[in-house]
Amino acid sequence: MTRVAAAVLVAWLVLALFADLIASELPLAVRVDGQTWLLPALGRPNALRGETHATLAPRAEWLVRAPVPFGPLQTVVTLEPDRAGAPPWGPDARHLLGTDEIGRDVLSRLIHGARVTLLVAFGVVLLSTALGVVLGALAGLKGGVIDLLISRLIEVASTFPTIFFLMVIVAALRAPSLWAVVLVLAATRWIEAARLMRAEVQRLAGLDFVQAARALGASELHVLLVHLVPNALRPVGVSATFAVGTAVLLESGLSFLGLSVPPPGPTWGELLVQAHRTLVHPGAWWLALFPGLAIASVVLATQAVGHALQRRFDGRA
């Protein structure tokens, strides 16, 4: 079970990392007009501007197709005049997951959407965990007024509905960049890490080995970095794993509201918006089904990995 989950996560990461090569209107390699191009989707050479698999195929000496030979923004309506009716077209051999209402390949958009979603999710978790560790350690170690302030902050922030705050901040940014979204989400997701870190530091600080280190004249910083943080990282790590799933849900929720990384770049939430909009084209079920499955698969996979980590750590403790 855990292996399957880990495999799903790795698969999505690979798809996200190599999205430009896996799903592109440009081939992996092509020899055309006496010139050979390797991985043109990466460099986007001027000579191939506006070219696609369809325009290159008749002229090229040879060509290695991309696994998904459509770009995320490419509309295929003019390429396929043999089809009856206007898009959205259902899944078939050419478009495994169908096309959207302006004729863009859903699979290609899903793969490129994975890049945004996963980048945001992992970025948010890294940043928010770091922030939480620092604040939690500060509260646990210093105590007094600092602890009181941070604890109150944790209490308030953990109950106030995040999505509302996010709506205000993201709307304030007008057209937020990917990193702005990461920053804003991280600013609201540090609570769990801080709470855990604070509890762990308070627990550990009373233990003998920390007392011993202090007695030997170790500085506060040394105690924190060498003795406290490494020992507290386990529970924080487990919670961070779960947080990846939460971040994916939150990002797709935001982009569903149109508040995440702006179009035309696809995100999973934005794909679902399209599905919602095309409910008037009754029955374009593929538009709703596949992005949802993608989100669910990542969330569930991170949860499974998180549970596995938890069991392992609990077993040893």
Partner: peptide, 11 residues
């Protein structure tokens, strides 16, 4: 718990 409610809503 891993399935977003807005997807459930659209479906």
């Amino acid at each position: 718990s891993g399935v977003p409610s807005f997807w459930v809503a659209v479906m």
